[in-house]
Design a protein around this nucleic acid. Sequence first.
DNA 1: GTAAACCTTTGAGTTAGGTCCAAGGTCAAG
DNA 2: CTTGACCTTGGACCTAACTCAAAGGTTTAC
Lengths: 128, 128
Amino acid sequence: MRIGALAEATGVSRDTLRFYERQGLLRADRRGNGYRDYPEGVVTLVRLIRQAQSLGFTLSEIGALLQGLHGGLSQNEIETVLRSKLHEIDVRMAELAELRAVVAARLAAACPLGLKTAGLLDPVRAGP
Amino acid sequence: MRIGALAEATGVSRDTLRFYERQGLLRADRRGNGYRDYPEGVVTLVRLIRQAQSLGFTLSEIGALLQGLHGGLSQNEIETVLRSKLHEIDVRMAELAELRAVVAARLAAACPLGLKTAGLLDPVRAGP
DNA sequence: GTAAACCTTTGAGTTAGGTCCAAGGTCAAG
DNA sequence: CTTGACCTTGGACCTAACTCAAAGGTTTAC
């Protein structure tokens, strides 16, 4: 698969794909003429990168994860990386749940406002 | 409250606090000598900003939300903003749950690898 | 054989979100 | 009345993650 097709298939620009390669996230074989030739499954990989990214992981974090998955690390190291990512995800999810509760409470309270006098953006409380 | 105390209380640098002010996220009164004087509740506000930020909201998104909360928008507009934020949070949470499943499945499978031959980073499947 | 649509590289520019620094004003303590 | 810890501004600089442009090689289509 050449870069144009990959760009087309993933919605990620050629420039960005080349950028990801420089960052070590993607790898491509080369044809005789110097053109990149992406291996099978690269579309899925690019999609995973974008997904992880949209969730706040940096490219270098993703790179570390992929290095593991790519066989550069031992079984044990891979597990460690995955476990720590899992933990991060759980933390993020908990934070999101918290933020959601704050926003939902504000919404439920129809937000009478008094930003200065009330506790600004404290979670809405029950009692007086 | 002066800027140093706020920085101390929130763990956010003075420079960053001034930056947030330029971005319209924070507001401070001025004392006779020109020093910023932050109103009550600002610590909570800064913490909320950081929290939202850590979840992938941009400063300008946060700014829009705060404009609403700050009374610049009508009750109705505020509700709309909050509802749309709530929706975004829900989408994010769903995405996170998905990513978590992928990573967890990889981990459970102890990731035998074969990145090239297997579907790279597809969720691990059951049957053949 | 030439035009269009691909591809290559290098290198500069952009945006977001800070971070640092210089030059200087303010204020409490000794 | 100086020292030190505050504060002010303006502007330069930094990293991440792109994005674009220039100059040129390759393939396919006519």
